[in-house]
Write a protein that binds this DNA or RNA. Structure first.
Lengths: 333, 333
DNA sequence: TCGCGAATGGCAAGCGATTGCCAAAAGTTG
DNA sequence: CAACTTTTGGCAATCGCTTGCCATTCGCGA
């Protein structure tokens, strides 16, 4: 590649016989310039192949037309729904989309925010691992929107896993299960807490015994340990922190000669790709995760545009629904 | 968030009693400044919470420390591997990572490149849909590296699907199959061509009949049409453009009462998540796609740093290997 | 015809770094 | 100790665009 000289506002200005400021305004503030002048400038710009330099623009104006999405886990297909939704929404508004993985580390997350600060207009934090305090603290100096996390009134979009957990319990109860064990995900995971809260309170209402085990690595590989621990617990129904873990558990249970759903029932969360064709097909709590990603960006963009007006941050709660497949059945006995 | 005033080189310079240029050099060109001065500057910077503004830096220097990955399809889990690899490699070098989907459109791809041009140091194009001519043309003015595509000596990293296709044919031949049909992917897909080339030439050498059908939508949903067409062809072995399509075909074949692998054999490409636990588990050509993403970024970074030196662009070819599972078996009869 | 506000366009000062060039200081050498 | 090289640091221009402010111009009511 050769470092060609790109044309600038000045080139266009000279060629069009106007001032650079007029060129700038022709692009960014149409009302500020007469429509015939504007048309003329745009034509000249077109002819010269002019494109505004986003960096120069951002440096002066402070608006970068860029946002970043921070995602904790590089290996979980569940997040790809969120990523897709977020990318799509950003791109629809001509917003450049930065993706960054934080490796499940709150420190890393914080560091990314500090590092990218000037390069973006704001951040969407998916399943953030940061503490409430740190989050609120950072929100003072940065535009933040959360996905699948709620912290002190910050704009956030969540899939209602808490409520969804009730559907899981109701389903299991209707199948005659009297005890359930939750195989928990990462300690700092807000969702893991929500899920457990939802499960245990719903179980309480049904007079069902609910235990929590873990944390387990929320991946297929974590399934073996989770399955073994779950079996020891004596419960007849296993609810895994997510589908990856659930699929890993199915595998382990099969290895150990247990039949699902005859001997034990297994439920996951997320309804990831593959949940419908693993064996047995997994009963799981599906949620509009792509929609959540989209909503996260939406909230962020609202916040950015009204940065000064101090508009009310919003909370979006998206409904989850249970997809019953073949991994749940009547309680044994 | 409140728009806090961040400290600049000038603040640090004043506080440290040096010139702004010295501050700048302390960060970016250590040899250019005495080590005790440097230490002092760094301390002051630390104390003031100074962070260089990447935009200002980029505007002047032309280096953005940012790259973009362009991916055609938002829905194919296969690309997740590439994305992960690329993001990881970029992040390891402190490079900001922009992700953009091009919706399978060459025009869109081109437009993204033009749009992001000044915001990045270069582009990694994954499975690019652009024509050879357009690609070469763009490579003159932009830093490009390709993944799973080769065009006129541009730096590229590919998974050797052509060679891998031979393994597929050999495997099928050893099972006694005499005819194979390839269910093709998108027309502009370079990989689709490579796969077909590999299949047909290897088939030729074995005296096996090879036909190509399609194009089909490379998704699970495309599987029904592909399966139906494949059945009509009379071949006993079906090679699908990718695993998504293959999984869709398995589903359709089951619906139509055909047994896999007893009645027909099915092979896919990519070894995506789920290929090992669909039913029957899919025989597929696995490749180090994450590695390919990593290599793509690596090549790009090489190119960027030696932009002027005109160092030799490299071609990386990563080996693919066949993972034989349960969807292939002896030819019927 | 005069006066006045609205519409339009230009001037020039930034935004926050990088970097070519020069000068002063420090080190080397014979 | 003079002459010369090497280090080190500062000056100031520059990257390309935005935007506050001012000067014209124009339309229109009085």
């Amino acid at each position: 590649m050769s470092p060609v000289r790109r044309s600038t506002v000045y080139d266009v200005a000279r060629e069009a016989g106007v001032a650079a400021s007029t060129v700038s305004r022709a692009f960014s503030d149409p009302r500020r310039v007469n429509s015939v002048t504007r048309e003329h400038v745009l034509n000249v710009a077109e002819r010269l192949g002019y494109r505004p330099n986003p960096l120069a623009s951002a440096l002066q104006s402070g608006r970068t037309a860029t946002i970043a999405l921070l995602v904790p886990d590089i290996a979980n297909p569940h997040f790809f729904g969120t990523i897709r939704g977020a990318e799509g929404r950003a791109s629809a508004s001509g917003i450049t989309f930065i993706l960054s993985y934080t490796e499940e580390s709150a420190d890393n997350e914080r560091e990314q925010i500090l590092r990218l600060d000037r390069s973006v207009d704001g951040f969407v934090l998916a399943s953030s691992r940061m503490s409430d305090a740190t989050t609120v603290e950072l929100a003072r100096e940065h535009n933040l929107a959360l996905v699948n996390r709620q912290v002190g009134g910050l704009p956030s979009a969540i899939v209602d896993n808490g409520g969804g957990s009730r559907q899981i319990i109701d389903h299991l109860a209707s199948l005659g299960h009297r005890s359930v064990v939750y195989l928990s995900g990462p300690e700092q995971s807000w969702q893991a807490k929500e899920r457990w809260k939802g499960l245990s309170s719903a179980a309480g209402r049904c007079g069902m015994a609910a235990t929590r085990l873990g944390p387990f690595s929320p991946r297929v590989a974590g399934g073996a340990a989770a399955a073994d621990a779950a079996l020891v617990s004596g419960a007849t129904a296993f609810v895994a922190h997510n589908d990856l873990l659930a699929i890993g558990m199915l595998r382990r249970l099969a290895e150990r000669g247990l039949r699902v759903p005859q001997d034990r029932s297994v439920v996951g969360y997320d309804d990831i790709f593959g949940a419908d064709f693993c064996v047995p097909a997994l009963t799981t709590l599906a949620g509009p995760h792509e929609e959540a990603g989209r909503a996260g960006v939406e909230l962020l963009l609202n916040r950015v545009s009204r940065a000064t007006a101090g508009e009310s941050p919003r909370q979006v709660v998206l409904p989850a629904h249970l997809v019953v497949r073949d991994s749940t059945g009547p309680a044994p006995d």
